[in-house]
Design a protein around this nucleic acid. Structure first.
Length: 269
DNA sequence: AGCTCATGGCGAG
DNA sequence: TCGCCCTGAGCTG
């Protein structure tokens, strides 16, 4: 259940554990067996993330991984082989083991195919080569809701439901505001904030979006974190008091996902 | 044991 | 807009 920070963190850690080494590759479940056979014993050069896409470089051929909603990629030392019926991909070298389960995508692709995937993606706040101006062009010319545009991987890559809900709260933006009614100044702040928030999430391995003065402890309430481990303002806090204004957090189903926001802080003006 | 839901995204209608 | 794909955690019985 990953947003871009999880994928970038995995790319970093996979490169650290396996980069430049000949690795064992297998597919205990069998659904990636043919490709795993081709890669077994070859050198893993490194891994790179673009938005929520992960590309593991085996020298001009890449394992393209997308975790989707439920996929998990664990990397640890000394993992015992368990539940092989769901283990799509296993990479190991020395004591290091990576285990991939439930991915939406796990495919062996060429460099051209990798480039084609990358070409579909919008600005990734976690990449130094991101082009936020291109994202702004799309947003400022669209009548679609900002909440929809931020989740659109062709616009901003790597942003998921948590960052989408939280960044809108942090900038008092009504989720249904059309993109073409968002000011340039606000977009600049949103982008800079995504760069900072997502960067911190890569380092910490969790999403924390709450400003210190709004932390529950600072407000005399006991600490409370979301199941994903991070401290958030509105995500999955329906009916609970907004950490800034204490009014109840709202929720709607929007484009197949749950959208959380504070009707008071994010009132349209 | 069964049910629901999850930090996603695709294709059919 | 809906159904569907993949897996497992957290509920309810």
């Amino acid at each position: 259940m990953p947003e871009g920070h999880v994928i970038h963190r995995l790319a970093r850690d996979l490169t650290g554990a396996f980069g430049g080494r000949a690795v064992r590759v297998s597919s205990p479940q069998g659904r990636f067996a043919e490709a795993a056979g081709l890669l077994d014993g070859t050198v893993l050069l490194g891994a790179e993330a673009w938005g929520k896409h992960l590309f593991v470089d085996f020298g001009g051929r890449f394992v393209h991984i997308h975790l989707g909603l439920i996929g998990k990629l664990r990397l640890a030392e000394g993992l015992e082989l368990a539940a092989p019926d769901t283990l799509r991909l296993r990479i190991s070298e020395g004591a290091w083991v990576a285990e991939l389960r439930g991915p939406q995508t796990c495919a062996l692709i060429t460099d051209a195919e990798r480039a084609a995937v990358v070409a579909t993606l919008g600005a990734d706040p976690l990449r130094a080569d991101a082009l936020p101006e291109r994202a702004w062009q799309r947003i400022s010319r669209s009548s679609r809701a900002v909440a929809s545009l931020l989740m659109d991987q062709r616009v901003t890559a790597g942003v998921g439901n948590i960052f989408r809900c939280e960044v809108l709260l942090r900038h008092n933006i009504p989720p249904m505001l059309p993109g073409n009614e968002l000011s340039r100044v606000k977009w600049n702040r949103v982008w800079a904030d995504l760069v900072e928030l997502m960067g911190e999430a890569v380092v910490k391995g969790r999403i924390d979006t709450v400003w210190p003065q709004h932390l529950p402890e600072a407000m005399g309430r006991p600490p409370r974190v979301d199941r994903h481990g991070g401290e958030v303002y509105v995500y999955r806090r329906t009916g609970q008091p907004c950490l800034r204004c204490s009014r109840a957090v709202s929720e709607v189903h929007f484009e197949g996902r749950r959208l959380y926001w504070c009707g008071t802080c994010q009132r349209r003006r």
